[in-house]
Every structure is written in structure tokens, then in C-alpha cells.
């Protein structure tokens, strides 16, 4: 077992015990910690995208920033044109990105089957999150007066999608393991991890369940991959140097977030806060997923196995 799944198991077990308290104060503290972690570790895992992009193609920083801004602008436009289309795009790309980061260390050959596996694994996770927190999500949607047909559709057919993506993932994953003769032990570990993710989604609040997955299993994993790549290419000497690399764009993103929030409050924009948050998150996610896809494709397989 690697460190990341162990941290995940440890956190889930400790939080399961804490959950017995069922206290409002504890829930508020947990929510605050979750938001803090998403804003720091979550954002920072995409803060060295410009350096990762250089792995596939050398570009000037200014050019890269312009690419990021244009992508964010186009994405925002899609949100204004059609909420459903934008949400579908966001969910699909996130699903692929989640699955890709989960399995990339197995060095599967890049082909249609791998791509379907990445997508179905991520989609399984996202549908699971919605399915196991249906009531909570429904209340939140009703409170914010957001109407998104896609979300309603996923919630209505949640179980069907859950079984569908689950079957595809299990079949493709088992086939991959058999074909590449990977250890049975690795397969079992993946199953345990998945089971724990769904247990966390089902027993914890939506925010806590998602944070546990997103921060520990996704962001930590990606940060680890980034650290190992930059450690070799930039000759980093310690973790502090890596944190220094993460800082500028993390701070810039947080600053941008504050400016947008202040604008939203000051001008009393006709958009709900959860929707605004969703648009902002998707603006970061889409270009990040694109950069990571290129990074994984061009460089990752050449690196030694990540511990």
C-alpha cells in the first residue's frame, strides 16, 4: 500500500468515530476545514500547470496564462449559454481527469479502452457522490433555485448510472489487470479504496465525503506526481522549494477568487453563490485537466515508479 491510500483509510476511520458526536459545532468546524483544504491543497495541485505544460511543449509563461484565461472565458460563456451543457462538460472532463490520475501510475497503454476506463471510474465516483447524498443535494438545489436538468436526471437515474459505470469500470479494470498480469493484491487494494470512497460518500456529508476523496486521493496523488517530476527536471532539493513553486499561482487564484466574490457581493449579481463557485471551479478544472492529460501522455511513463 502506498502512503496516499493509507492516509485516506486513517482519515475515514477517525472521522467515522468522530461522526458519533453528531454535533452542529463539529460539523461547522469540519465544513470550515474542508473549504480551507479545497482552497489550499485543492487549488495548489493545479498551480504548476505551466511547468508541466513545458514537458510537452515549450511555451512562454505569458502565452500559457493567456491560454488559461481564454479557456476560462470560453467556459464561462458556455455556462451563460446553457447551464446543462456546461455542467455536462464539466462533469465529463472531471470524471476523465479523476480516473486518469487514479490509474496513470499503472502505465496503461494509451488507447480507447484506457480512456473509457478513466472516464467510467471518474463517472462512477461522481455519480456515487450524487446518489449517496441525494437528499442533501436536492435541498441545496431547491434553496438556491437552480434548475439543472442534467443534475435532476443524474439524481433520478442515479442507481442506474451507478450500476452502469460500476460494471464498465470493474470489467475493464479486471481485463487490464489480467492482460498486464498485474498483482491480484493491487486489484484488491483498488477495490478496498473504492469501497471506502463510497462508504465515506454514504456516511458523511457531501462536502466532507467529497473533500476526503478530492484532497487525499486526488490532490495529494497529483501533487506527489508533480513533485517527483519537478524534483527530477528542476533538481529540487527539498519539499520547501516545491511549495515555493506552488505559491505564486495558488495565491493568484485565491486573490482572483476574493475579487470575484467581492464583485458578486458589491454589485449584487443575479447569480447564486453555489453556481458561481461551480463556474469558478470548472474554469480552473478544464484547462488543468487538459494540461495534465498532455503531461501524463508525454512524460509520465518515462519516470520511475512513484512511491
Amino acid at each position: 500500500m502506498k502512503k496516499v491510500p493509507f492516509y485516506f483509510i486513517a482519515c475515514v476511520l477517525i472521522l467515522l468515530q468522530l461522526e458519533q458526536l453528531n454535533s452542529q459545532v463539529l460539523t461547522s468546524i469540519q465544513n470550515a476545514i474542508c473549504i480551507f483544504l479545497i482552497l489550499t491543497l485543492g487549488i495548489s495541485h493545479g498551480a504548476v500547470d505551466h511547468l508541466l505544460y513545458n514537458a510537452q511543449e515549450k511555451v512562454r509563461l505569458s502565452k500559457f496564462v493567456i491560454f488559461y484565461l481564454i479557456a476560462a472565458f470560453v467556459n464561462t460563456m458556455i455556462w451563460f449559454v446553457s447551464l446543462d451543457l456546461a455542467l455536462l462538460l464539466f462533469l465529463c472532463i472531471s470524471a476523465y481527469h479523476f480516473g486518469q490520475s487514479q490509474f496513470i501510475e499503472y502505465s496503461f497503454r494509451r488507447n480507447l479502452y484506457s480512456n473509457i476506463l478513466y472516464f467510467s471510474w471518474g463517472a462512477w465516483i461522481i455519480v456515487g457522490l450524487v446518489l449517496f447524498n441525494q437528499t442533501e443535494i436536492e435541498i441545496a438545489i431547491n434553496q438556491q433555485f437552480i434548475t439543472m436538468a442534467i443534475l435532476n436526471h443524474i439524481m433520478y437515474y442515479g442507481l442506474h448510472y451507478f450500476i452502469f459505470f460500476g460494471l464498465i469500470t470493474v470489467c475493464l479494470f479486471t481485463l487490464k489487470f489480467a492482460r498486464l498480469q498485474l498483482s491480484f493484491h493491487g486489484l484488491l487494494l483498488e477495490i478496498v479504496q473504492l469501497a471506502l470512497i463510497f462508504i465515506a460518500f454514504s456516511l458523511f456529508s457531501t462536502l466532507l465525503g467529497f473533500t476526503l476523496y478530492f484532497i487525499i486521493l486526488h490532490s495529494f496523488r497529483v501533487l506527489n506526481q508533480e513533485f517527483h517530476y519537478l524534483w527530477k527536471t528542476l533538481n529540487l532539493k527539498n519539499l520547501f522549494q516545491f511549495i515555493r513553486l506552488l505559491m505564486p499561482f495558488t495565491m493568484l487564484a485565491l486573490f482572483g477568487l476574493v475579487v470575484i466574490l467581492l464583485t458578486w457581493m458589491y454589485f449584487d449579481l443575479n447569480i447564486s453563490l453555489p453556481l458561481l463557485a461551480l463556474i469558478l471551479i470548472s474554469n480552473i478544472t478544464l484547462p488543468h485537466s487538459y494540461v495534465m492529460d498532455g503531461f501524463y501522455h508525454s512524460r509520465f511513463r518515462n519516470l520511475s515508479k512513484i512511491e
Binding site: K2, F6, I9, A10, I14, Q17, L18, Q20, L21
Partner: peptide, 25 residues
């Protein structure tokens, strides 16, 4: 008492996690 269960549950889990860590990593 939920507080009693949670406190001793967490303490007990720490022991379990140490053994788990030793055995796996």
C-alpha cells in the same frame, strides 16, 4: 454517551492504525 464513545473510539483507532501502518508500510 456519544462523547465517551467517540473519544475512546478515536484513541483505540490510533492503536489500530499503528499496527496497520507497521504491517503495510
Amino acid at each position: 454517551s456519544a462523547t465517551h464513545s467517540a473519544i475512546y473510539g478515536i484513541l483505540s483507532t490510533l492503536g489500530y492504525l499503528y499496527i496497520l501502518y507497521a504491517a503495510w508500510m
